[in-house]
């Protein structure tokens, strides 16, 4: 029983974080909060990938004669680039938020809907 929990704990927490991020994106009206939620979602996916590449008893994939078991380097490569791309797209989202604020004077979703209804 305990082993079954330990075998899946990383995946469960990754899914919990994913759902918290998802809920923040869907249920919160503030656009900056939505972007923070999207970042939580994104990090949870990173966590899921990296957890899958971990090998028990392994070490970081930097070759050395003293070690023979290494964790899987492929998820590391994929996620490494995804993190930097993630911050670039976050910056793009934040730029959109700034422009919305300048055009409408608010970044709350409800008020934006009302303002869009008027015109």
């Amino acid at each position: 029983m305990l082993q079954a929990v330990l075998d899946h704990y990383n995946y469960w927490i990754a899914i919990l974080l994913m759902m918290i991020g998802f809920y923040t994106v869907v249920a919160r009206g503030n656009l900056v909060k939505k972007i923070v939620g999207l970042n939580i979602f994104q990090t949870s996916v990173f966590l899921l990938y990296i957890s899958m590449g971990k090998v028990t008893g392994g070490t970081a994939p930097i070759l050395d004669e003293r070690f023979s078991v290494y964790s899987n380097p492929i998820p590391h490569v994929l996620i490494l680039t995804a993190i930097v791309v993630g911050v670039a797209t976050t910056a793009l989202g934040l730029a959109l938020v700034v422009r919305i604020r300048e055009s409408y004077g608010t970044i709350e979703e409800d008020e934006l809907d009302l303002l869009d209804g008027e015109t």
Binding site: T43, H76, I83, V87, T90
Partner: peptide
């Protein structure tokens, strides 16, 4: 989880640059 390169990037990007950008916004 043995992903030292990823940890390095996440620490520099997530804890550094994104926080600065969000505060600027």
């Amino acid at each position: 989880l043995d992903a030292v390169d990823v940890a390095f990037t996440e620490a520099a990007v997530g804890a550094g640059i994104s926080t600065v950008l969000m505060i600027a916004v």
